[in-house]
Design a protein around this nucleic acid. Structure first.
Lengths: 234, 234
DNA sequence: GTAATAGTGTCTATTAGACACTATTCG
DNA sequence: CGAATAGTGTCTAATAGACACTATTAC
């Protein structure tokens, strides 16, 4: 296998000098699929946005085909803006799903993404044209194709991020109290296993105290101090 | 995944009834690029395989275009088998590089992969047609395009895996001594920061003692016990 | 014997868990 | 005042680091 003097199709590489070679092969359609997550702070759980497919009665994650010379991040942003009127997201790649038979209509490979948004960013969901639902990631509904695996990857990714860092996906604003932060982390995790003392110790060296106190919240108790994330201006 | 007859591009459109949407858009060429890593146990470092580009004097990671209805893992395996005569790899996806201008000849998106192999698996390197070199990942040579970023992702991925688990990429066989294991881990990390005591405590609950002793090694000292990974037969 | 490598127990320093105690606000 | 929430110090348990000591081999 080592001494091939004749460059045949197997030899073709992106390292080659001419672009003609790239066109010898049929190309897959490339898609993006997005696990759009948010939290329910009251019920302390992570939710994923699912869309009804018009043709069948089934549900799927939002997704779209990649357009010409578009980056994946832009395709994700446009998909969520067009289909769900959701803006200002921070998409992150999870994996490429490449089973050639995953879509029986055509050869499609899909780059799975995750994005985490604040609940307010989903207010426009009902008003859109598409039927949508919000489903707890730990009690998933039926989803087409490999979309359940995407949801699984998405929740693992987000949960592992929230174990190490204070609210890395900005579900809270720049300033927040420790109990607000803890509620967000417990919603992401889906459960609470740290006492307020342990949570404070875990987070305090990644936070900066502002010295300011929280404005009156309506409830009783001593007002809490506001913190901000380290390496974050104001 | 045998060698299916390759229908040409036009034939694809009769595969399904609702494939029209997918064909509205031009599609990118999809490639795989591979950071093929191994260790130098003598110099205690991680190495990456680079290939000379025939046309210019530059170096690049091995890569190839995805062929029709081929999975990415198969493309990676075939690429390394054909170009470098390397077999038996376990490819893992790292990220998709999708800058539309990353290749000025065409619209190409590339799925970066990492694979870790034992040094013996690279014995055939010199005999191949392509010129290759082995470069320490921490003192990288010049590489084209975004390939330096791929090497960076690859080494971070492998190092984080080796922090948690005993030789997850099977650089050693099924049975090994603790000092063999530690040498492998130090080569992956590029440095040694654990005493043999600490290393033993870290690994021992993920290993199973076999009761057998290492065969004479030629060096002095008490013969070491052989261990195997937990959840691994014999 | 000495030098070299392997395995175990132990002492100590650091970290993690639990919680008592004080502080501040609302009603 | 009591109930509720916030912040701090302290006691203790578990874990991590250092290393003394014993074991086994080659020379």
């Amino acid at each position: 296998m080592g001494d091939n003097a004749i460059p045949d199709a197997d030899e073709i590489s992106i390292l080659g000098p001419s672009d003609k070679k790239a066109h010898r092969f049929p190309r897959p359609t490339v898609a993006v699929d997005i696990a759009l997550l948010t939290i329910d702070t009251d019920r302390q759980q992570l939710l994923v946005v699912e869309m009804a497919r018009d043709d069948t009665g089934k549900w799927a994650l939002p997704g779209r085909f990649l357009r010409e010379r578009e980056t994946l991040a832009v395709a994700v942003e446009r998909c969520l803006a067009d289909k769900l009127s959701v803006h200002g997201i921070r998409p992150h790649q999870l994996a490429v799903f490449d089973d050639p038979d995953r879509d029986d209509r055509d050869w499609v490979i899909s780059v799975a993404h995750v994005a985490v948004v604040r609940p307010e960013q989903l207010e426009s969901l009902g008003s859109g044209s598409a039927e949508t639902r919000l489903v707890p990631v730990d009690r998933p509904g039926e989803l087409v194709w490999d979309h359940p695996a995407i949801v699984r990857l998405a929740k693992e990714y987000v949960r592992s991020r929230y174990e190490a860092e204070p609210d890395p996906d900005r579900l809270l604003g720049p300033r927040f109290t420790l109990s607000e932060l803890q509620r967000v982390h417990e919603a992401v995790a889906g459960h609470s296993d740290l006492s307020r003392f342990a949570f404070r110790r875990l987070m305090k060296d990644q936070l900066v105290a502002t010295g300011d106190l929280n404005e009156p919240t309506g409830s009783r108790g001593r007002p809490a101090e506001l913190f901000r994330r380290k390496r974050d201006r104001s």
